[in-house]
Write a protein that binds this DNA or RNA. Structure first.
Lengths: 219, 219
DNA sequence: CCCCGGCTCCACCGGATGGTGGAGGCGGAA
DNA sequence: TTCCGCCTCCACCATCCGGTGGAGCCGGGG
């Protein structure tokens, strides 16, 4: 059976030659095409229908990220591995959001590159260690973590009713609206709002909204 | 020179034996201790000061995540690889936020496990492919992209001053406080707040806070 | 049994808020 | 220059909010 069909996209002939050599050394990988920039890649990918595209970012005419977006928009099923020298935080996130299956630095060892192509062809992701580190840092955001924990503990002190009222308050409702929506008297709502203020140690409803939203997600 | 010092933490004797065998097969890795649960791990790690800890999650007395938190709190420099059968989204994020350097599924090939320990010992992260996929999904979530975009476009209509006031409002300040903080008259603040309401098409300040926070990201 | 906490309401009050309709200054575009 | 948008303020007023000090009801626990 046929091997993994790979297209290499890079404006540097030396890089293309190098990649072709590395990947060609693996019997199960076939480099079926090359492109010199993103524009060119559109045609080559459309013609060759590869399983995997190795895509440089810095290229004339159309860069690798734009090319990735275009390919995805055109419904190409090719899995794309972004290959670059630098891994700025923004590039990594952009590439992954565009649907790149891999993000490798150009200092990746040849053997690892081959492994990456195989894995990506199987639908698995493949990131360079430093890229993984960045990704972890992105989800780890310790900043809101402390705030969130505090918000959660404070909100935990609220009774069921108070939490409902607090939610309504943070939805931007007035006391009258809350009363209608919870089938309560306005006086009751005011009481609950008051105890929410006390328990959260705040003095107005905007601050309640802050706590509720902090605890929610923020992810 | 000595190899990488590894401690294995798992309540299942068979798993411990298996890991010991796998890691023992690598000449540069030394399994210097075992623990049967999180509690036990505290002592063993304190005594052996390993470079890497292979940590199961489901364990009696103290689970692997709690143990990871404790070790980090105690200032242990050991890099921790979480080993588990299931990779729920929550576990992955929790483990990484606690500072785990790796997250591997128990179906990881022995050779990959050895590679993982070496890489983690060098300070690089190591995640199983499915874990990486989850991580990517976590940062990619366009979540409330629509809402955020709407919030941004609406906020973009605000003038500089109005935006400052809107920010202050969403910080939970009263008009008087805002006036002081921006060196304005209270009347001016009220005017700005009013036009913010009009432009954002809302009727109270909590809703302003919602827009501002939606646009910010919370990512 | 009584007490306590939660839920439901009430009245009263001062201050904050939101809506309306102004006014004057200032800088840039027409 | 004239116009227009932005920023700065003003007054008036109805409403809403937030704080205080109640009250009655209910269910669980000491």
């Amino acid at each position: 059976m046929a091997g993994v069909r790979v297209v290499v996209v890079d404006d540097d002939p030396l890089v293309r030659a190098g990649l072709r050599m590395i990947l060609g050394g693996a019997p199960d990988l076939d480099v079926v095409g090359e492109a010199v920039d993103g524009q060119d890649a559109m045609d080559v990918v459309a013609r060759e229908l590869p399983d995997v595209v190795l895509m440089d970012i810095r290229m004339p005419r159309m860069d690798g990220l734009a090319a990735t977006r275009r390919l995805k928009e055109r419904g190409s099923t090719a899995r794309i591995i972004v290959l670059t020298t630098f891994d700025t935080d923004e590039m990594v996130l952009t590439a992954l959001q565009l649907g790149a299956a891999g993000f490798l630095l150009k200092d990746t060892a040849p053997a690892d590159l081959v492994v990456a192509v195989r894995r990506v062809a199987l639908g698995e992701p493949m990131l360079s260690p430093s890229v993984t580190t960045q990704l972890i840092a992105a989800v780890t955001r310790p900043s809101d973590d402390g705030r969130r924990r505090k918000a959660r503990t404070l909100l935990a002190r609220l009774t069921e009713r108070e939490r409902e009222v607090a939610d309504a308050v943070s939805a931007g409702m007035t006391n009258t609206e809350i009363a209608r929506s919870l089938h309560l008297g306005v006086a009751t709502v005011k009481t609950h709002v008051g105890s929410v203020f006390t328990k959260l140690e705040v003095t107005n409803r905007v601050q309640v909204a802050r706590y509720v939203h902090d605890a929610a997600d923020d992810r």
